[in-house]
Design a protein around this nucleic acid. Structure first.
Length: 491
RNA sequence: GCCCCGAUCGUCUAGUGGCCUAGGACACAGCCCUUUCAAGGCUGCGACGGGGAUUCGAAUUCCCCUCGGGGCACCA
């Protein structure tokens, strides 16, 4: 049975890198009919943030990444919060001490800090100097008597090397001499990541560990722990990290501002608020670090599940391409059923105080659907529908090759034609206006250009005839009249 | 400083010794379509980091260099 997990620590909001790691685990589980487990690694009390758990669960659900075991759904291997498993870690750490694979360390944090500073100054490795490794029973008793609460450290072999097989990278080894005696159990009784991770993965019968590249250096330590416990380690697959769009370093949770001043979303909640579709982000994220073939980019969730494999996971880190995500989001928006798009647009319009019912939004959709990259783009596309009064430079009314008088005529004639129309519908509006433009001997771009400015206040706007129909005859006539006033006043 | 991982167009990638004159996508440029803007269609620009070795043959295997990334906490 394949069992994989995503094990975030609730120290901040869910970001693209975490979501990608989660996605790969999820895909692997779904592909192989395995189980996907969500485990919360909340063993750092100083960095814990209450709101991050809710954000995490919400973000995963938004992306459609459901978990078979974990918070809110439970499961046979619980609890799924490490803070609720403390006695377990203490018990296992103790076992290691008793077996001689670990020992208690009484060094103060001040001493350790000094050690690091000193080593750093001399450009030496910064690890622990194993001061307490060979303490006698008497020495230990003395420290205990002084009331010092020890940490527990793993007794790393001094010689030899530790290696493991990575499903993506092959064999990776590290000299044991490169590892220090790292801490398993902190003095507050909480386990470090290393201990909790190994104990839980074993107890929860995790078969494959898929996590970011940055964990490679600590994997040999984990292997050493499995060995000390007498357990078989799971299979490892280290995923390439996602690089920041700024080009320096990996993608962080902090605000990322490109050299062009553009602000890049990194948190899932930010992508959502910016108007990205979950299915587009899902597709895009699946493709950062994994590829299907040499030509297919747009894949449904089902196709991705069906084809996902570790074979095609890349080894090298990838920059997060926002240009490509934008393109892909546009593709997904265009593919959306118009009713569906209208529903998704509603909250964004509501938030902008554009009061439109679903029916009206639905009428606008055909005009804007292929002009949006993100849902938020709709706002700038339709704002003129909701404006009380348009604000624009009257000179814009006068199109290239036209004069004030001709412009006045276009407005006057349009007004007349539109007023006379028996029904105010797109096809009729178009027919009448085209005929009028032709009879006046004006080019379409001239005639409609003037009208566009008059009715939308913009040089760039959605297709005119559909726009007029939605605006409605009253509003259109009012705006044309207003344009004539502005034109005359400016002339 | 030490250790680990990586390296194909500007970016994301395909490539698993001959199908490679290196394929696709994004971005960019041009043209077409067109009431503006989009969308769409067509075309173009554009890469195997360097040096050795193995081989009849190397983008693909090995070594060195270079460059990039990551790790070295009582964080995860």
């Amino acid at each position: 049975m394949i069992r994989v997990r995503y094990a975030p620590s609730p120290t901040g909001y869910l970001h693209a890198g975490g979501a990608r790691t989660c996605l790969f685990n999820w895909l692997f589980a779904r592909r192989h009919n395995g189980r996907f487990i969500l485990r919360i690694e909340d063993t750092d009390r100083t960095r814990y943030q209450e709101r991050s758990l809710a954000d995490l669960l919400e973000g995963l659900r938004w992306l459609g990444l459901d978990w078979d075991e974990g918070p809110e759904v439970g499961g046979p291997y619980g609890p799924y919060f490490q803070s609720q498993r403390l006695p377990l870690y203490q018990e296992y750490a103790q076992k290691l001490v008793e077996a001689g694979h670990a020992y208690k360390c009484y060094c103060s944090q001040e001493r350790l800090q000094q050690l690091r500073a000193e080593a750093g100054r001399r450009n030496q490795p910064t690890g622990y100097d194993r001061h307490c490794r060979e303490l006698s029973a008497k020495e230990r008793a003395q420290k205990e008597a002084e009331g010092i609460v020890p940490v527990i450290r793993l007794k790393v072999p001094l010689e030899g090397e530790t290696s493991f097989h990575d499903l993506i990278r092959g064999t990776i080894s590290m000299q044991n001499s490169q590892m220090d005696d790292f801490i398993l159990l902190k003095s507050d009784g909480y386990p470090t990541y290393h201990l909790a991770n190994v104990v839980d993965d074993h107890l929860m019968e995790i078969s494959h560990i898929m996590r970011a590249d940055e964990w490679i250096p600590s994997t040999p330590r984990h292997v050493l722990m499995y060995r000390a416990f007498g357990w078989t380690p799971p299979l490892y697959a280290h995923l390439p990290v996602i690089l920041s769009p700024t080009g320096k370093g990996k993608m962080s949770k902090r605000k990322t501002i490109g050299s062009d001043g553009r602000e890049y979303p990194v948190l899932i909640r930010e992508f959502r608020a910016a108007g990205y579709l979950p299915e587009a982000l899902f597709n895009f994220l699946a493709l950062v670090g994994w590829s299907y073939d040499d030509k297919t980019e747009i894949l449904t969730r089902e196709q991705i599940i069906q084809h996902f494999d570790l074979e095609h996971v890349s080894k090298s880190p990838a920059k997060f391409s926002y240009d490509k995500l934008d393109w892909m989001n546009g593709v997904y928006i265009r593919q959306l059923d118009p009713d569906d798009l209208a529903r998704r647009l509603k909250p964004f319009l509501d938030k902008a105080k554009f009061e439109a019912d679903l029916h009206t939004i639905r009428r606008m959709v055909p005009l804007i659907q292929e002009r949006m990259v993100k849902l938020t783009d709709a706002l700038a596309l339709v704002d003129f529908f909701f404006a009380e009064e348009l604000c624009y430079d009257p000179q814009l009314l006068i199109q290239k090759g036209m004069d004030v008088e001709q412009t006045r005529q276009v407005l006057a004639e349009s007004e007349q034609v539109l007023r006379a129309l028996p029904v105010f519908e797109e096809a009729d509006i178009e027919a009448a206006l085209r005929a009028k433009a032709e009879s006046m001997g004006l080019k379409a771009r001239q005639f409609f250009g003037t009208l566009r400015i008059a009715t939308t206040g913009k040089e760039v706007a959605p297709p005119l005839f559909g726009t007029l129909a939605i605006l409605g005859r009253d509003k259109v006539l009012k705006r044309i009249a207003r344009a004539r006033e502005l034109l005359m006043a400016a002339a």
